[in-house]
């Protein structure tokens, strides 16, 4: 489904629209939220909050703001970071960069997921460690280029192209051409 078709459906705000939206994006957003919060219940809570925000504010989205996915990704990241702030997770905020989306596979305590996690680790292991950190900061945590450059001690001018190379590598692994 193209973004336009999806939006046409979502504007109707009916049950079918919700199901489509949920099926397409809930797990991706949940993955982003969980990477930031590292707590299943709290992440489910934020996921719910994010869907309410999408639903209520859908009319304020337009394509000049970027991709629809980018818009909801931003909502998910911002809601998670707000939660970290409001709950006084000061340490979590400070340590935001130390854990990445691969580490969180270890936090997944449910047995079902552990088995999946092994398979996922296998494919993620193919990514260079540098790429894992870069994708983690820029995509999952929404760091600016400057912040990522400081954190990883790489020249600001190369952040963009290094990230491009890493995403290309990811696409090869995932076979998204």
């Amino acid at each position: 489904m193209t973004q336009e078709e999806l939006l046409q459906q979502i504007y109707k705000k009916d049950g079918k629209a919700f199901t489509t939206l949920y099926d397409m994006y809930s797990k991706s957003l949940y993955g982003v939220i969980f990477t930031l919060l590292k707590d299943k219940e709290e992440s489910e809570d934020i996921l719910q909050e994010v869907f309410v925000k999408i639903w209520k504010n859908i009319d304020s989205y337009n394509e000049s703001k970027g991709r629809f996915y980018t818009w909801i990704l931003n909502i998910a990241r911002n809601s998670s970071i707000d939660r970290l702030r409001s709950k006084g997770h000061n340490n979590s905020l400070k340590n935001l960069s130390s854990d990445n989306f691969v580490h969180i596979l270890d936090y997944n305590t449910s047995a079902t997921n552990k088995i999946d996690a092994i398979g996922i680790k296998e494919f993620i292991k193919k990514l260079k460690p540098k790429c894992i950190r870069l994708i983690d900061l820029l995509f999952f945590k929404g760091y600016t280029q400057q912040e990522a450059s400081d954190e990883l001690e790489i020249p600001l001018g190369t952040v963009k192209t290094q990230n491009r190379n890493c995403i290309s590598e990811l696409r090869t692994i995932l076979q998204v051409q």
């Binding site: 994006y25 809930s26 797990k27 991706s28 957003l29 949940y30 993955g31 982003v32 969980f34 990477t35 299943k40 992440s43 489910e44 996921l47 996915y69 989306f101 691969v102 969180i104 596979l105 997944n108 449910s110 079902t112 997921n113 999946d116 996922i120 494919f123 993620i124 994708i135 995509f139 999952f140 995403i167 990811l170 696409r171 995932l174 998204v176």
Partner: peptide, 13 residues
Amino acid sequence: AVINLSYSIAPHL
């Protein structure tokens, strides 16, 4: 690619 990635690392929902 990034939807796939974040999807696959998410815990069971």
